[in-house]
Design a protein around this nucleic acid. Sequence first.
DNA 1: GTAGTGCCGAACAGAGTGTTCGGTTATGAA
DNA 2: TTCATAACCGAACACTCTGTTCGGCACTAC
Lengths: 193, 193
Amino acid sequence: MSGDRRVRRTRRLIQEALVTLILDKGYDAVTVTDIIDRADVGRSTFYSHFTDKQDVLLSNLDELTVLHRSPADGGSDRLLAFSLPMFEHVREQERLVRALLGRRGGGPVHARGEQLLAAVVRDELLGAGARPSATLELLVVCVVGAFMGLLRAWLEGETTASPAELDAAFRAAVEPGVRAVLRESGNESPSHH
Amino acid sequence: MSGDRRVRRTRRLIQEALVTLILDKGYDAVTVTDIIDRADVGRSTFYSHFTDKQDVLLSNLDELTVLHRSPADGGSDRLLAFSLPMFEHVREQERLVRALLGRRGGGPVHARGEQLLAAVVRDELLGAGARPSATLELLVVCVVGAFMGLLRAWLEGETTASPAELDAAFRAAVEPGVRAVLRESGNESPSHH
DNA sequence: GTAGTGCCGAACAGAGTGTTCGGTTATGAA
DNA sequence: TTCATAACCGAACACTCTGTTCGGCACTAC
């Protein structure tokens, strides 16, 4: 492990304190003073590690490593392969994800999540034979929007559906459209072997 | 017109000031002091009309009356009929919508917009023969998510597509899936041949 | 063991919030 | 026009939160 043990300890205490507080009061209502009280850390110590509240929030994003899908799954010709594993992971990490991505989580993390997810979807569609174009970008936006919508609905408690059900709903909604677009745009040999 | 002219004037000045300031600096960065300076209104006056910043923001929502679609369009069997008019309206009211709904607009309006839109989509699907169910709700979430995604992308300047192109992308992405779901769920003898 | 690094915590200036209150001015009704 | 009313002004206030500084203490890594 890199660095001083005290440094790791302090950073971890601060991050955990923020997550707890967000779940309590929502991101906006949490103050730096709250955080250092909960983490039992000196004020100057906080500012020697993070510039502000949002900095702590974004620093947590590194824990969400699922977005980097395993690239060795070339065998599956299944479209939108990220969907089910993602929903499952979210349920496992429910507490953290709810704090970071929920309405109480305050936006910036949501934005970055969308970007990462958009990259995944774009790569997958390109791999499936689509051509880079403005139309493709709009399709990616729709797919990501639908997925994030489901994620948000679940985080908000609007639905109690299981990961498998969320995955099914996601596919039912967007897969036909995606396949239709691929059929038109992806010019040749969509199915090898 | 109901009420004192001074009241209308003051409220309007404050609302306009907030919109301008959001476009300048983003919602979070705007302070009440900023607003009353820009609106040239006394501090106590502000607090006699609104409780805080967000109150002003949400008060603006009444101007966005397009969401109440004209219910007399029963003739069109076109699915997702709200889409194109909405994209067009958004372009017309670009300044206001950008301030309220964009990433700079700060969330709460976005949430309410999603709710209103979800009601529209749900009604439309029910009218097209779908049955109320948890599955339908998830479909609605996906459709709304895709639409809001496109809206956001346009507001963020990620695309320069026209309303017609946005509408086309939206339909291409979700209409096949919606029709497929309707075919299964609304078991009401569609053209079976 | 010791040099160095991290932490403490109090104190501070600055900015923003929401309230109060006496005085001023515009408005709508008579 | 007159006039009671309601709205506005704006300064002042108590409060909270922010981000920085600094001397002294404690722990860690080597």
